[in-house]
Computed example of a mutant assay.
Amino acid sequence: MRKIAMFGLAALAALTLACSSGGGTTSSVSGGEEQSAPAEAKEKTTTTAKVGQKVTLTSDILGEKTVVEVTVANAKQYKVEPGDFGSKPEHGVFLVLDVTVVCKDGTYHANPFNFKFVAKDGTVAEIALTIGFKPTMSAADLSAGQKTNGKIVFDVPKDAVADGKIQIDGTGLDYDKPAAFWAL
């Protein structure tokens, strides 16, 4: 019984060390100044950039470093999807943005589902599945030196766009947490 307890403690210590050694995604802005966050939000380390600025996401999990540069640019609104059979948005407007993802170090799974629209009141919208806005961003596994780009689309209320933000999720163990935002 003592051997099992010792093994359990050793396994717990190893897991704690693994999860605490370098995890977490950090973000930074280039191409202009980072926007200041309200005083109550200062405790968070999530970067907020302006649309058009490049954000660098960095994570280091157990010595596996990932560095990715992401740019969200050219926010445009549409009342109807382009094309002969263009659909109309259900919630107000289609918000269309150009995204570029460049893997600088390590590997990264670029995916349009890594992005969300967040309204001022905290309401979150996932990407809208449309076919008229070309080229669409596709999921891609990137290695250092590789990039992908394309459009992402959100169906959101028109009045939510002005104070809204685009969120990108973190990398590695932080895949389910916001890593950075772009203010519209």
Rank of each mutant, 00 (worst) to 15 (best):
Lys151Cys: 00
Ser143Phe: 03
Pro82Leu: 07
Leu15Tyr: 11
Pro135Ile: 02
Glu81Gln: 14
Gly63Met: 09
Lys104Arg: 14
Asp60Thr: 10
Val156Asn: 04
Phe113Pro: 00
Pro157Val: 08
Ala13Cys: 13
Ser87Glu: 15
Ile127His: 02
Met137Asn: 05
Asn111His: 07
Ser59Ala: 11
Ile131Ser: 14
Val161Lys: 01
Val118Met: 01
Ala183Asn: 13
His109Tyr: 11
Ala139Glu: 15
Leu184Tyr: 06
Ala139Gln: 15
Lys76Leu: 12
Val67Glu: 15
Lys158Ala: 14
Asp163Val: 06
Gly86Thr: 00
Thr25Trp: 00
Ala180Phe: 04
Val118Asn: 01
Pro89Leu: 00
Ser27Leu: 01
Lys177Trp: 07
Asn74Gln: 15
Gly32Pro: 09
Val153Cys: 09
Pro38Ser: 14
Ile152Tyr: 07
Lys76Pro: 04
Asp174His: 09
Val93Glu: 01
Gln77Ile: 08
Tyr175Ile: 11
Ala13Glu: 06
Thr56His: 06
Asn111Glu: 08
Lys116Pro: 05
Lys158Met: 04
Thr136Ser: 15
Lys158Arg: 08
Ile61Glu: 04
Asp174Val: 04
Gly106Leu: 11
Val156Thr: 12
Ala10Tyr: 05
Asn114Arg: 05
Val99Arg: 00
Gly150Arg: 13
Thr107Leu: 04
Thr123Val: 12
Ala160Tyr: 03
Ser138Cys: 02
Val161Ala: 03
Glu34His: 01
Asp155Gly: 13
Ala14Asn: 08
Lys50Ala: 15
Ile61Pro: 00
Tyr175Val: 09
Gly145His: 07
Ala11Leu: 15
Ala162Pro: 06
Gly22Asn: 03
Phe117Val: 05
Leu12Ile: 11
Val124Ser: 11
Ala119Arg: 02
Phe94Val: 13
Arg2Thr: 08
Ile168His: 00
Gln35Gly: 09
Thr56Asp: 06
Glu81Asn: 11
Leu142Cys: 13
Pro89Gly: 00
Lys76Phe: 06
Lys3Cys: 02
Phe115Ser: 02
Cys103Asn: 12
Ala37Ile: 08
Ser59Val: 10
Gly24Ile: 02
Ala179Ser: 13
Thr47Leu: 01
Ile127Tyr: 03
Thr56Met: 09
Thr26Val: 04
